[in-house]
């Protein structure tokens, strides 16, 4: 049997909102260590990797070595409309069960339950290497969201140029070109902090459509972390409630290759 209780149900709601436009069906891989999810978008350009450690849950039980629960994202986000912002969520599945039961509760006054039919999803797993990035940028989620939204008005691709002292986001479109520079700002109040760590400068191009999709996970944390290496996928990481110990939602995006 699998049973997990999360007092802050909105965390799960935000996770699903963050990935629902990228992936149609996903597998929840449950083990005694927590919940993992890995899925590619239909074009195989990006990869979503979720890790929820048991620390994020008030209660967590998985009797088997592992369980795979196949979820349709559209149905899950529909179910989570039932979940109020202050509700707790309990997920429960029998070992050989065909459903995952969600219970949303606010105190004892209101209890909603929905049994979701599980799917059999064929999914490929990719090995994500532990990567040390040449450039790391930590910036407020609101800033990331705003930059991607504003830049998408001018072009399809955005160049991220990370150098000592700051990071430049630029776009070159039909109507002209523009750039936004964010300075390395470690000594301002937490919510405005921008931390740019550079071993060697990196400049890469990415599709704004995907960068904007990742921004839908912004409500999950205050800060987002970008990892860049030459000629490798960009890593866009949201730590759950800004605590890596609870887990993280990571997106990887393949770069555009210049001709």
């Amino acid at each position: 049997m699998f049973e997990a209780v999360l007092s802050n149900g909105s965390t799960l709601k935000k996770i699903f909102e963050g990935i629902k436009d990228l992936c149609t069906d996903v597998n929840f891989d449950v083990s005694s260590e927590g919940i993992k999810l890995q899925a590619m978008d239909s074009s195989h350009v990006s990869l979503v990797s979720l890790e929820l450690h048991t620390d994020v849950f008030e209660q967590f039980r998985c009797d088997r070595d592992s369980m795979t629960l196949g979820l349709n994202m559209k149905s899950v986000t529909q179910i989570f409309k039932i979940c109020g912002n202050d509700d707790s969520v309990t997920m429960r599945a029998e070992d050989e069960g065909e459903t995952l039961e969600f219970t949303f509760e606010k105190g004892e006054d209101r209890v909603s339950t929905f049994e979701l039919k599980l799917m059999d999803i064929d999914s490929e797993h990719l090995g994500i290497p532990d990567t040390e990035y040449q450039c790391n940028v930590k910036l407020p989620c609101s800033e990331y969201q705003r930059i991607c939204r504003d830049m998408a008005g001018f072009g399809d691709n955005m160049t991220i140029d990370c150098q000592k002292g700051g990071v430049t986001f630029s776009v070159d479109g039909e109507v002209g070109k523009g750039k936004i520079f964010l300075k390395h700002q470690p000594n301002v109040e937490e919510k405005h902090k921008v931390i740019v760590t550079v071993k060697e400068g990196v400049e890469l191009d990415f599709a704004l459509r995907y960068l904007n999709n990742f921004a839908k996970a912004a409500p999950l944390s205050d800060h987002v972390q970008l990892g860049l290496n030459s000629d490798t996928p960009l890593s866009v990481r949201f730590d759950i409630e800004d605590k890596a110990t609870l887990g993280s939602l990571k997106f990887f995006l393949a770069p555009k290759i210049k001709e």
Binding site: M40, V45, L126, N157, P233, A254, K256, E259
Partner: peptide, 14 residues
């Protein structure tokens, strides 16, 4: 011009 690469070019299938 730039071409979109696939994520499977970078991460190995398990």
């Amino acid at each position: 011009a730039a071409n979109q690469s696939s994520i499977t070019n970078f991460f190995q299938r398990k």
